[in-house]
Amino acid sequence: MSNRTTTVRAGRRARPVRRRPLWQRLGPLPWLAPAVLLILTVVVWPAAEMVRTSLRRIDTSGTDHGPAGLVKYHKLFDDPRLPAVLGWTVVWTVAVVGLTMLVSLALAQLFHQNFPGRRITRWALIAPWAASVLMTAIGFRWMLDQVAGVLNRLLLDLGLIDHARAWLGDAGHAKPWLVLVAVFVSLPFTTYTLLAGLQTVPGEVYEAAHVDGASRWQTYRKVTLPLLRPAFLVALVVNLINVFNSFPVIWGMTQGGPNADTATTTVFMYMLRGYDVAESAAMSVVNFAVVIVMVLLFLKVSRWNEEEN
């Protein structure tokens, strides 16, 4: 009996092990491959090419004259216009994102209520989002035109001004209008993101707060805002990236002028490409690094990955 058992066990050990097919052993890799390939093609490769270009001597015709080291970065940081451009970029980003979040929060709260015509007003808010941002910027530019603009005609007819003004002719008048238009085109996405967050808050939470005797302001501060935090953070991060990298609004209205006074770093980068392609690439690298640092700092401060207690 013992010999028979030993023979059976030996036979079992002698059986060849069936290997799984290759596609099963790869697991999720075949499904992830298209996304990885897309990221490598549209993100990693352009970023690497951008860095490489910033280290070369390339003239406006595209001819590569060899390596330049960090010469283009020194040239960029020695540009006397850069400090003003960086300062305006910070003001532009903070002003547009701050106003967009405040107005969108109010609009989302309004659209969350039941009132006559709510569906129509929701549809109307989509209009700035559906239209091309560049088209919207050009439309505002013509509206603010000194000769043919409807704003000057309206203000003259009302007697509020005594002569037509070039609203986009100098940075002092142009910058508030640029911020206003940027907020206008940013409202739809932000409002609908916050509205979606408000609609996920269960009604039982408000009932419990009411039973506990909480006032409307206490309920909003202690219940609504904490539960709205995920949607708020998503909208804030997306707006920070979009506004910092915004190009159509400024280029469509002022083209960064006069003398780069209304140019952000993104617009300034585009302006440099007509003089020095490699310096423009260096500005792109700086922009890319600033965006990465800005997002990482924001996520750390907001404790994105930490769970609520």
Rank of each mutant, 00 (worst) to 15 (best):
W129E: 03
A47C: 12
R52G: 06
V44Y: 01
A137G: 12
G87N: 12
Q109T: 14
I138A: 12
T41S: 11
A130C: 06
G62H: 01
T89Q: 14
R81V: 11
G62T: 01
P116G: 11
A130H: 10
I58S: 02
S104V: 02
M143K: 03
A131T: 13
T53S: 06
H112K: 00
R119L: 12
P46K: 03
V44W: 02
T60H: 07
G139N: 03
H112T: 01
L76V: 09
L125A: 09
I126H: 15
L37C: 09
P128C: 03
P34L: 01
S54Y: 03
R81K: 15
L82W: 08
L134T: 15
A148F: 13
A127K: 09
T121L: 13
G62V: 03
S61W: 06
T89I: 09
R81N: 15
A130Q: 11
A148V: 12
V103S: 04
R81D: 13
V90E: 12
W129C: 00
A124K: 07
P128L: 01
A137Y: 12
R119Q: 14
K72A: 11
A84F: 11
T93D: 11
G66D: 12
A95E: 04
L134M: 15
P28W: 00
D145R: 05
L55G: 05
L86K: 08
R118Q: 15
V133Q: 14
L134W: 11
A48W: 14
V133D: 13
A124E: 14
V96S: 05
Y73I: 03
L70F: 15
T41K: 05
Y73P: 07
V91W: 13
L29C: 01
A33P: 02
L76S: 12
D64P: 06
